[in-house]
Write a protein that binds this DNA or RNA. Sequence first.
RNA 1: GGGGAAGUGUCGAAAUUGGCAGACGAGCUGGACUUAGGAUCCAGUGCCGCAAGGCUUGGGGGUUCGAAUCCCCCCUUCCCCA
Length: 817
Amino acid sequence: MLAKYNPREIEPKWQRKWADDRLYEVVEDPTKPKWYALTMFPYTSGDLHIGHWYAMAPSDVHARFKRMQGYNVLHPMGFDAFGLPAENAAIKRSIHPHTWTMQNIENMRRQIKSIGAIYDWSRETITCLPEYYKWTQWFFIKLYEHDLAYRGKAPVNWCPNCQTVLANEQVVEGHCERCRTRVTHRDLEQWFFRITKYADELRQYEGINWPERIKMMQRNWIGRSEGADISFALDYPGVTEKEISIFTTRPDTIFGVTFMVLAPEHPLVMKLTIPDRKAEVEEYIARSQRATDIERLSTEKEKDGVFIGTYATNRLNDEKIPIWIADYVLMSYGTGAVMAVPAHDERDFAFAKKYSLPIKIVNAPPGWMGGKLEAAYTEAGVIVNSKQFNGLPSKAGIDAITDYLEEKGYGGHTISYKLRDWLISRQRYWGAPIPIVYCEKCGIIPVPEKDLPVLLPEDAEFKPTGESPLKYVEKFVNTICPQCSAPAKRETDTMDTFMCSNWYFFRYASPHHTSAVFDMEKLKYWMPVDLYTGGAEHAVMHLLYARFFTKAIRDMGLIDFSEPFSQLFNQGTIIAEHQKMSKSRGNVVTPDEYVNKLGADTIRAYLMFIGPWEHGGEWDDSGISGISRWLNRVWNLVLDKYKPKIKEKSETEKAHIELQRVTHQTIHKVTSDLERIRFNTMLAALMEFTNYLMKVKKAGNVVDSAWKEAVAPLLLLLAPTAPHFTEELWQRTGSEYSIHNQSWPKWDKELTKDEEITLVIQVNGKLRDRFTVPVSITEAEAWQLALDSEKVKPYIGGKKIVKTIYVPGKLVNLVVR
RNA sequence: GGGGAAGUGUCGAAAUUGGCAGACGAGCUGGACUUAGGAUCCAGUGCCGCAAGGCUUGGGGGUUCGAAUCCCCCCUUCCCCA
């Protein structure tokens, strides 16, 4: 009686053996080509769901494939362990964030191990441990020393009811996530990284293989636009500012300015508002704070605003123009002020119509006779009503007018980005403390390297106060100045967790190195990452920050490459009940019960089979039995003894050649699908191969050695997908341990060649007949076949053949009339 | 609103990139075997039609001998926007 496939028994057995043998521990080996395969490390939320498997299992399959191809493969795993949920758990359930996080890691590590991946656990990296965040702090200081970190004022989300600062993700449609109170803003002194310095370089993707989609998203995020800064004169009693600066991409239309619009939160608004408009302006500002940026920028929403009662002067024609505020101008973009040219901007046009503001045409559309415009004319035209610039095409006008402004000192060429400097201060406990000391005498002093890490004190209060909990830990705050030894205070904000995930992939190269941030030799061997896989939700922030960081430390001379991830691949999202899986929605699908019932190998294969990896999709376990059945068939196919019905080789020639051909075609197909990251079709090919082998087995028409030559590749090709299953079969068929140390099968191109093809006969492009013919068929023979076909004759009888098309190996097409 | 991706059987999806539409699975329908199982094996399964045959890749138009694939317009869904 044949032993049954029992994953519950064999999976833990092999996992134990692989761990005992340290099969997947990896060391630098200059004799082998390296392959660094990285999956985005998970946040320590507590438990793993099927979405984590979807990220980890297929990438492990690819890494295993590379390993069998002879690469020295680094495939590490770790945990993104700092962050707000740990602190919320502390507040809600009185459990210390450290305890909560480490417990979660324990659980998640156990769950991840059940996948059966080749993770080298000796390299595990956890961002909330001092041995890691010491170096996060070290990098902060490097950035500070290179003028890439600075302090500045920035608004934070503030809940007046909870009296606390809120992270963006805690603000839901303008309200506090916890108490539903309307969120307001407050200015705080905070730390920034000067990512904008790299804005232009970050738009370039030379030498890296990234999805167009992600590059597009990053470029949009950076949002470069060329234009001009132009200052308008101000003269308002009691206000020291004598000018106001705007950014525009259309300086060629400056003579058409009929009003100016400031963002409601522009610092000059309250200073410039005349007394009897104050109430109205204040009310508008309050109202605009409720809208999100997306709502404010929507062209569907009717533009509204308020005149603040003051005028600015257009220095090019000395016209006085009224200053308005409107929420379609954002403080965060450009200078927070725009010159409004209603004739040539859609939003300005709508605004001018609504408030009956003048519309002055300065850029004439082709054939314009001086009449009024029905809508804003935003295309290129010819400059009119603009003094000495009249007659210039608008494109040339942009330069001419900007040059003139520059000459007069009223402004000049500039490039504006949507990208803002990266605010990294968090008024939170559970993060890496910013290693800075404030001394009354010496000012801002970075903590010296020898004093790192600045440890998070264990005994902080996590009650929401609106300030960092660290502020109330006296032992932490009070220190001495590293420079003059006078009493001083520590910075109490912690760093954004994106700073931790910014560089973890560097750490895996030498995770336990203590004398420096990296072991340079090892770093040089492994970096950059050859294939980085993860969800598209990190398209901008994490991936952009990691690129910025890499370029920044390159410029410090720490490394000599510019891009951390040579290839990027985004898998899709697994959803459940038509929504993203999340604890709060209660639709989390846990893999544990599936592992228990069906085994990891089945789930690995199923996740890859449901569709292209980049698609993701609804979790639906109804199809999983197809994989189960298939693996059971393979199990029986391999273990149930093959009984050839023939003895002499000559009899078997034709069947043997065909078996070889199918085998080699399968090797070719599986290899190229793995290379292209098309796991679903790879599995379909393996299933077809299995079906074919079942037929051969039933027929018994090849000799035993030929059979074995086909079964071995089947197991090897399946090994990355079903590592435990194939290891067991490999052993049971008496082969040498471990299957995972075997070489990837190679195909012989000669053997893959078909002897016969299907020749398709078309008439006027429509299929009329088909023949199985030898590949060697000549064009003349093909035509003979077509013309003699009984099925074709009725379609050509009595008609004239006007054209013939012959596609060798595929079809003939007769065009008749 | 802007930017992006995608629409193919009952369902998940294939189609080596302009050349046999629906591979491989799921489901369903028959059948075989039966120590009655949600097991295994065999056959069938896009739609209309008794058939010959016709129709069919969200809808409409176009290019081409030939279009799921390329171009234009429209519709729908999903993703991203500190």
